[in-house]
Design a protein around this nucleic acid. Structure first.
Lengths: 356, 356
DNA sequence: TCAGTTTTGAGGTACGCACCTCAAAAAATG
DNA sequence: CATTTTTTGAGGTGCGTACCTCAAAACTGA
């Protein structure tokens, strides 16, 4: 086969596009990479040829040629709860593998529930060093502004875990928190003896959209289906185990007849400690969020009765895939990127992974 | 930078390995690709250099150079149940994307529960055309033999959905079916009024390992925790909706007091039809397997009360990744490939994807 | 030590693409 | 029309690897 053989039956290449469009390789290249100096008519002829052949750029080859390195950054709340820790582990764990795929990731921890701090970090970001950011943070005007600015500078932005729909973020990687709250209520309703009782809802902060949505969903289903259940107003634990452990005695002093707890936020360690100390753990039905070493153990031993979770490994991998697709201007496989609302009972917990 | 510059701070390449090992590029290449004509001492020097540098072959570049095309085949049971159909959809859907990644996949349907047919297809497989096979089929001696043969011919073999541990298959992509059965029992036990009643278990075939394991797990938990529940012997539906619909009336004639059904196999269509016709659907608690358009609708409307499921998209994508890793002799990310036992209640069903 | 064999090195081509330069061709301008 | 400006083509180099050839060097055995 000569230098420019026909390449029968295989994927079309830039050479095929050039031949079909009746232009030179250089011109196709200019069009594909948005370089100037091509007439509009010619540009269209090239795109027609691309259409006709069904040409798709070989990203692996392109990245090889370009020496491209993707640079992504995660911004996580500075909180010592297990969910965030698990995200960190996943990020570190995957970074070695990603190095082989020309993508560098790093993460930074930002004071939790502090929109100003987050906004200021965002505004200092340099498009030269960062191609995309994944943000796990509160939705406020300042953050929205910062995101919209960063988008203008050409970076891709992903909302992680908690959506930021008011901003121009490219995508949200996380679960449908309203549905998660509804699921929790469905479980709680079934698990409470006689379908009735007084339920405490623990939340993180009113600034956290994910927590608000969970509460909303929880209330919906309780109202729809479980008339006998009385839901107290939310206890704000700020995702902080220690704070939570301090607050709970007061709540139970006021409401000693609580029979159910929906722990919709992070900070399970504090809750578990409290339950153990007070021996309340087999008197109170607990539906909690996020499967971690701790919550897994609590489920195993009956302190927790069900766990709603989202796979942190999936969250991180999905974020990377979406960010990469965004900077490459490629489509996203929605069903692959949809994060499931996992329901764990004692029986279906996945085996514990060794942390790397 | 000259032709053989130092490449500081970046990933080491074959050139770096050659330099450090004090041999030529050609020799490194011979070692890496297992070509003959290199002394053992030299081979070791090369491996030492690889170790020292932490060199990892750039698979993208290697595949580009080699013009490699992965060729994988799925073998699915010839059954018109929705689960298998969903797998087919996923395979077809992903094949376009895979074409861009130099991998071709196809599937073939084999008479269900017919070990001879499966074994004969396997033995006819040509390593020239197929690099790897994913098998969803029964575990018998004939199949085991055929798999071991095929392995000897250099193909990679994955057990899909139902494990084939007696054979030399490289990997199993699917859920822990024992745990799935246990989960089903846990749900059933909680959902049955007063925690007691007579439960029918529907299975596919005694030849199907996954079904056997589910039954086993189900019995375990019922015995451990739900003394008031009486479980009947399995009804074999052969994953065939029509057959199942024909068999069920007889069972209910004999046991009119059935209050729970664990449908551990495929063929939900037949079950749903029967329940609707006989208006049993709100008298009987049903825990079924696999989220499909049909079972989703049944859950939505209360005919089913819970669904245990495995994500077919994940199954297919995972299979491909593992097969590719196998033929490339690369490690597998276990936590990414672990298929979750999904529990779906009405509230946490994922939105319906448009089939492609 | 010499011929024979094995091992090694040097070099090239290719994969599909990005990016560069220079000159030729075509179009726009006055 | 000639001149300037814009557009296009031809060609090369490199990304990291595979795979090939040929000759030089290093070992082997007798």
């Amino acid at each position: 086969m000569g230098k420019h053989g026909r390449n029968i039956g295989l994927k079309p290449t830039v050479n095929d596009v050039a031949r079909v469009a009746g232009v030179s390789l250089a011109t196709v290249d200019r069009v594909l990479n948005g370089r100037p100096g091509v007439r509009n008519v010619t540009i269209e002829r090239v795109y027609d040829a691309i259409q006709e052949l069904g040409y798709v750029r070989d990203t692996a080859a392109a990245n090889l040629a370009r020496g491209r390195v993707y640079n992504f950054q995660f911004l996580l709340p500075q909180s010592n709860n297990e969910f965030v820790t698990s995200l960190e582990h996943q990020i570190m764990g995957i970074s070695k593998v990603l190095a082989l795929e020309r993508t560098k990731i790093s993460y930074e921890k930002i004071p939790a529930f502090n929109p100003q701090a987050l906004a200021s970090i965002l505004s200092r970001m340099d498009p030269e060093n960062v191609d995309g950011v994944a943000i796990f943070g509160p939705e406020t005007a300042a953050v929205k502004e910062a995101i919209d600015q960063i988008k203008k500078r050409g970076m891709s932005v992903i909302a992680l875990v908690s959506d930021l729909p008011s901003s121009e973020r490219d995508y949200f990687v996380g679960i449908d928190n309203l549905a998660a709250g509804r699921t929790a209520a469905q479980l709680m309703g079934h698990f409470l003896p006689n379908g009735q009782g007084k339920v405490l809802v623990i939340t993180g902060s009113m600034l956290a959209r994910d927590h608000l949505e969970r509460r909303q969903g929880f209330d919906q289903v309780i109202n729809e289906s479980f008339g006998g259940v009385d839901v107290l107003s939310s206890l704000e634990g700020r995702d902080d185990p220690d704070l939570l452990e301090k607050l709970l005695p007061g709540v139970f002093a006021k409401h000693p007849d609580i029979t159910g707890i929906y722990s919709s936020a992070a900070g399970n360690a504090g809750l578990i400690n409290f339950l153990r100390k007070t021996s309340l753990d087999d008197k109170v039905m607990v539906v909690a969020h996020e499967l971690t070493a701790l919550s897994r153990e609590a489920l195993e031993h009956g302190s927790f009765n069900a766990i709603i979770s989202q796979d942190t490994g999936h969250l991180v991998r999905s974020t990377i895939r979406v960010l990469r697709a965004n900077v490459d201007n490629l489509p996203i496989n929605l069903s692959q990127e949809r994060i499931r609302i996992d329901v764990y009972l004692r029986e279906n917990m996945p085996p514990l992974d060794e942390k790397i």
